[in-house]
């Protein structure tokens, strides 16, 4: 700390002595508030990191042994996937339930977000309205999905209802922002041109705004669908919303069956890859305008 401050002073004096000499930028970066702030932040972070490592309690765990055992667990999971409780059909059905949860929440969230997004787009709505909606959805997004599920569980009870409402709620927050920014991509002048022909707001939205941003809307929706799929797996475990997540929770935490955990992970991964491929294919078709 002292060293830096001293050098700051020295540089400051150099600057004054030279009196705006044009060599100065070559010798040292001009010291302004921003550079000073960056240096101080880095210094504090370095100090905290050192302190953490020095005082880290390993609680008697042998690091080498622990690493080896973790790797051996991973090997059991991913090299010997096997099922004891679930038949292949059961597992498949459970993934479908999770997929259904993700689909339902994305569709519900998407429809609500479409209208909120229109009202939050600066080229389509008055400024006061966009501000209200944008700050409202920012608050929704700031709270994690799982917390919304737990909040709604107070009213709806832990289970699929709370999961659907909570996931939908967060999806609305996420998609409204994404959609409204896609809508804002369309030039104001195009909207103006259609207004000048006598078209009204709804006609402009459906004839110009949505067709122009369709690719963005689709890719944001798919991204949210993927996120919701991941969330739906977690909700199965955390909120008792059924689906493959619940089986994963049972296999891992209750039966301690690492083989089955591996199998379920592979299954979820396979579904994720299929979804991603389908999304890419659809987006390409839309972009080429077929």
């Amino acid at each position: 700390m002292m060293e830096i401050d001293e050098s700051i002073e020295v540089w400051g004096k150099m600057g004054k002595r030279d009196g705006g000499n044009n060599l100065r930028p070559l010798i040292a970066k001009p010291l302004d508030r921003a550079t000073l702030a960056i240096r101080l932040t880095l210094f504090v972070l370095a100090g905290m990191t050192t302190y953490t490592f020095l005082t880290l309690g390993s609680n008697g765990v042998n690091v080498a042994q622990a690493t080896a055992e973790t790797l051996s667990n991973f090997a059991t999971m991913f090299l010997h996937p096997y099922s004891h409780h679930l038949t292949v059909w059961d597992a498949f059905y459970e993934v479908l339930i999770t997929l259904g949860l993700a689909y339902l929440t994305t569709v519900l969230g998407g429809v609500l977000a479409l209208f909120l997004g229109l009202m939050a787009a600066q080229n389509l709505a008055p400024k006061w309205l966009t501000n209200i909606i944008k700050s409202f959805v920012a608050v929704i997004r700031a709270v994690p999905t799982i917390l919304w599920v737990l909040i709604f569980a107070v009213a709806a009870g832990l289970g699929s209802t709370a999961a659907v409402i909570g996931l939908t709620f967060h999806s609305v927050g996420y998609l409204t922002k994404a959609y409204s920014e896609s809508f804002e991509d369309l030039d104001r002048s195009v909207i103006e041109a259609l207004r000048a022909t006598g078209a009204n707001w709804w006609q402009v939205v459906f004839q110009a705004v949505i067709p122009s941003s369709a690719t963005y809307l689709l890719s944001w929706t798919f991204l949210r669908f993927e996120i919701n799929f991941g969330n739906a797996v977690a909700m199965g475990a955390a909120a008792g919303a059924a689906g493959i997540g619940f089986d994963l929770f049972m296999a891992g935490g209750y039966y301690f069956d690492l083989h089955e955990v591996g199998l379920i992970t592979y299954l979820v991964l396979a579904f994720a890859i299929v979804m991603e491929t389908a999304a890419t294919y659809m987006k390409r078709r839309l972009q080429s305008g077929e």
Binding site: S189, A193, L194, A208, P211
Partner: peptide
Amino acid sequence: LRSKIGMIFQHYNLVDRM
């Protein structure tokens, strides 16, 4: 009124994707 008055712009202002 607007439906009886056409307008043409410097930057054309068409919906490019249609």
